[in-house]
Computed example of a mutant assay.
Amino acid sequence: MPEHAQDDVVWAVRELNKRTRTQADILVELNDRLAVKGVTPISPSAFNRKAVRLKALRQRIETTREVMSGITDLTAGDLDDHAAKLGHLMMMLIAELVSDGEDRSSKELKEIADAFKSIVSGQKISADRRQKVEADADAKAAKTVAAVEKVAKQAGLSAETTTDLKSAFLGIGK
Rank of each mutant, 00 (worst) to 15 (best):
H88W: 14
L89V: 13
L89S: 14
M90S: 06
M90I: 08
M90T: 08
M90P: 00
M90R: 12
M91V: 08
M92L: 15
L93Y: 04
L93Q: 05
I94T: 10
I94C: 05
I94H: 08
I94N: 10
A95T: 13
A95V: 12
E96P: 13
E96R: 14
L97F: 15
V98K: 02
S99C: 02
D100Q: 06
D100V: 13
D100Y: 09
D100S: 10
D100P: 10
G101H: 02
E102V: 14
E102I: 13
D103A: 08
R104S: 12
S105I: 07
K107S: 04
L109A: 03
L109V: 02
L109T: 03
K110E: 00
K110N: 01
E111N: 01
I112M: 12
A113I: 02
A113L: 01
D114N: 03
D114P: 09
A115I: 09
K117Q: 03
S118Q: 11
I119Y: 00
V120M: 06
V120H: 03
V120D: 02
S121M: 04
G122K: 14
G122E: 13
Q123R: 09
Q123D: 09
I125P: 05
I125V: 07
S126N: 05
S126Y: 10
A127D: 10
D128G: 12
R129G: 05
R129I: 10
Q131R: 15
Q131F: 12
K132V: 15
K132R: 14
E134P: 03
E134I: 08
A135C: 04
D136T: 09
A137Q: 13
A137C: 05
A137R: 03
A137V: 09
A137P: 05
D138R: 11
D138H: 03
A139N: 14
A139Y: 13
A139K: 15
K140A: 11
K140T: 06
K140V: 09
A142E: 06
A142C: 04
K143R: 12
T144Q: 14
T144E: 04
T144V: 15
V145E: 08
V145N: 04
V145M: 10
V145G: 06
V145A: 11
A146L: 02
A146W: 01
A146G: 00
A147D: 00
V148R: 05
E149M: 09
E149A: 08
E149S: 12
K150G: 01
K150H: 00
V151Y: 12
A152N: 01
K153H: 05
Q154V: 05
A155I: 11
A155P: 08
L157E: 00
